[in-house]
Amino acid sequence: MKDPVPLTTDRPGQVVSATPPAPGRSRRRLSDRGLAVVFVSPALLLLLGMSVFPLLWALYLSFTDYSATRGGPARFVGFGNYTAILTSAQVHQRALTTLIYVVGAVTLQTVLGFAIAYLISRRTHGRGVLTTLFLVPMMLSPVVVGLFWRFMLDAQFGVVNSMLGSLGLGQVEWLTRQRTALVSLIVVDTWQWTPFIMLIALAGLTAVPKYLYEAASIDRASEWFRFRTITLPLVWPLLLIAVLFRAIEAFRLFDLVYILTSGGPGVSTETLSFHVYKVAFLGFNTGTASAYGILMVLVVIVLTQLYLRYLNKLKEG
C-alpha cells in the first residue's frame, strides 16, 4: 500500500492538492492565468477607458475641425491642424517661453535641491525634522501656492516689496513686467518643487556606502575630491531621474501661470499648456487643441526617450 500523499509541504503556507478535482464537479476552478486576467482586468479597463480611449479619441479629433460647443459633423482636415500649429509664430513664441521656464526652473531646483540635501545628509541630529519642514511646500496645492505668492508679490501691498522697502530698495513690479514676471514664475515653482529634488538626492546620498568615504579618509583625500569622485558619481543617476520628472512637470505648467500672471503681461508668460487651454476653451477649437496636445505628448516622449538612452549609457559606463 502506498503512503498517503502529504497534504502539506515542508514550507509553511504552501498547500499541495492531494487529488485532482472530482469528476462531474460543476464549478471549474480558474487557472493561474484566468485569475491573473480577473485581477488585472479592472485596472486594464480603467486604463483603457480613462487614458487609452481619450488619447485615441483626441488623435482622431486632431485630424478634424471638430468643435465641442458648435457640434455638427467633424470635417476631416488631414494634417491641417498639425501644419498650422508647427508653423504658427504664436506657438513658437509659447514654446520659447516654455523652454526658458523649464531650463530656468529645473536648473535652479536641481542646484538648490542637491545643495540642501547634501547639507542635511551631513547632519546627524534633526535630519528628520529638517527634511519634513523642507517638504511642506511640495504638499500644498499649486493653486494655493499661486494665490499666496500673488499677494506676496503684489507691487503695492505685497510683503516682498514691503521688505525691500524697509531695506531702502525700490518697488519691483514682479508680475506685471515682461522680465520679472517669468522670473517670478520660476522662483515660485522653485520654492514649491525644490524639495522634490532634495528628497530624491537625499535618498541617493544616504545610500552611498560609508566605507568609500572611510577609504578616502585613510588616503587623506580632500573634501572636494571625495565629493567629486564618490558622492556625485553615485548620486548623479538618481538625480537625473528626478530632473526628468521635474522637466516633464514643468513642461506642462498651467496652474501657476493661470493664478499668478494669466499669461501676462500680454502673452509673455503664456506657456504651451496655457495656450492649449485658450485654444480649447476660448474658441472651443477642439480639433486644433487635440492636435496641439498630441504634439506636446510627442515632444515629451521623444525627449524622454533620448534622455533615458543617455541614462542607460551612463549606467553601462
Partner: peptide, 13 residues
C-alpha cells in the same frame, strides 16, 4: 478670427 470660419485646420490659432 472673423475671417477664419472657412479655414481648413488650425482654427483657434
Amino acid at each position: 478670427v472673423l475671417d477664419s470660419s472657412n479655414r481648413k485646420g488650425g482654427g483657434g490659432l
